[in-house]
Design a protein around this nucleic acid. Structure first.
Length: 410
RNA sequence: GCCGGGGUGGGGUAGUUGGUCAUCCUAGAGGAUUGUGGAUCCUCCGACCCGGGUUCGAAUCUCGGCCCCGGCCCCA
């Protein structure tokens, strides 16, 4: 038997309904903040991703050559594509742009809990606003979106300038190495690196910076950073808006295109792969040949949110199972059309079953059975049966439709 | 790429000191029941991940591969 490719999943209807349910909540919050959906190609020139992240990421992507010999890659994330699109299509649109997307991405990695080779991201990009208000609103949006899903999570907000300021005298390669140590809380490695550089004087302040959760203390440790006022404003706005977060100056956010404020979200009940959100301010446009533009955005790891949420109660919707006898076969089609025109999910027998068997089937798949037999065909009425209560009555079709429509949770 | 645990009908399982027709539950189809469902009973459908090896004989032992789960690495 053929298996699906490694790290991919099939979604049955129950799961798709749960996913759409959560997706709609995310969409709704983004819409309320003024974000409009965009869509970019599933695959792009390989260069789009290597420009941004270096050749190393080829190992972690689905890379292929098309019949014209072009080097392409399935998108491993969407931010780069959105900025490319902005430069191609929307440079002169009024700023700021608020764009969002919900789309699948592909990474060639070893699957584990919450990590798949095809996975979905819900992301937003705020393009062209370079202010504390923009930074704060983006974090507020992230917080509201995660809250809307019901996932339990922790939000961490930081800023790259604090750490950069401490290590600014080191070689760029050494700066990255130090940040990598701190990101992993690898203090032995940190000390070894600093010792080899003869800069053990930095050890205490770096460690203190990564561990502090206090803004004033962070400024004292890191010294004068140029974005001090803006970050204070950002944090002040978050507090004023009642956003729940903690400060964390150890967030490194992987690569270098993040410029300042960064934030991450972690779900409480996942395993090693517990990060469900990541974002910050960044500048990418210059890489793709555009005038540089300040941007701020984040992406939510949709699949991890779903794993964290666990089983979701499906929405209760009315379903009608039509049941008919031979005499009712013609009229049942008319009734089916009326029900469907009224927006009611309606299913009828396609198996040639007898009345009892049709009803048995309806009891498993529907909330109501509507019976069209000889009597109903002659009288022009229908018999509607509530399959939960077993109550049954013969009424006009309009009355039956009204009863089905009145059905709902609780 | 690395470490550990796994893979038996659609789902869940029994069976692994090698030996009848591979167990049971559930789901699905049909019937007992051609104007009323959920119960019961009967019938049917349907599996040893793939390939090589050892053997008279492999679900069971062995080797390789694939896939799943957890972790490492990485995480743009």
């Amino acid at each position: 038997m053929l298996q699906k490719p490694r790290g991919t999943r099939d979604f049955l209807p129950d799961e798709m309904e749960a996913r759409r349910h959560v997706e709609l909540k995310l969409r709704d919050v983004a819409r309320c903040y003024g974000y409009r959906e965009v869509c970019t190609p599933e695959f792009e020139d390989l260069e789009l991703f290597t420009m941004r992240s270096g050749e190393g990421i080829i190992e972690e992507m689905y890379v292929f050559e098309d019949k014209g010999g072009r080097k392409l890659a399935l998108r491993p994330e969407i931010t780069a594509a959105v900025i490319r699109m902005y430069i191609n299509e929307a440079k002169v649109a009024p700023k700021p742009l608020r764009w969002c997307y919900f789309a699948d991405c592909f990474r060639y990695e070893r699957p584990q809990k919450g990590r798949y080779r095809q996975f979905w991201q819900f992301g937003v990009e705020l393009i062209g606003a370079d202010t504390a208000a923009a930074d704060a609103e983006t974090i507020m949006l992230a917080s509201d979106m995660l809250n809307a899903t019901g996932v339990r999570y922790e939000l961490k907000v930081g800023h790259l300038s604090f750490m950069k300021n401490l290590v600014k005298d080191l070689e760029p390669a050494m700066q990255r190495r130090v940040r990598a140590h701190l990101d992993k809380k690898d203090y032995d490695g940190l000390n070894a690196t600093l010792e080899s550089l003869n800069r053990m004087d930095l050890a205490a302040s770096l460690t203190a910076l990564v561990n502090t959760r206090d803004l004033v203390e962070a400024f004292e440790i890191a010294g004068a950073i140029p974005e001090k006022e803006r970050f204070e404003q950002t944090i002040g706005s978050l507090d004023a808006a009642g956003v729940k977060y903690s400060l964390n100056f150890g967030i490194a956010r992987g690569l270098d295109y993040y410029t300042g404020m960064v934030f991450e979200g972690f779900a409480e009940n996942l395993g090693a792969e517990n990060q469900i959100l990541g974002g910050g301010t960044y500048r990418l446009a210059h890489l793709f040949g555009g005038d540089d533009v300040a941007s701020c955005g984040f992406a939510i790891g949709f699949d991890r949110v779903m794993v964290s949420l666990g089983d979701i109660q499906p929405a209760v919707v009315p379903v009608v199972g039509l049941v008919c006898t031979i005499e009712g076969r013609t009229r049942v089609l008319v009734v089916a059309k009326s029900l469907r025109d009224a927006g009611i999910r309606t299913e009828m027998d396609l198996m040639g079953r007898g009345l009892g068997a049709q009803l048995a089937h309806a009891s498993k798949t529907a909330n109501f059975a509507i019976v069209i037999g000889k009597r109903e065909a002659e009288s022009g009425q229908v018999t509607i049966k509530n399959l939960l209560t077993a109550e049954q009555k013969t009424v006009d079709l309009a009355a039956a439709i009204a009863e089905v429509r009145a059905f709902g949770p609780g």
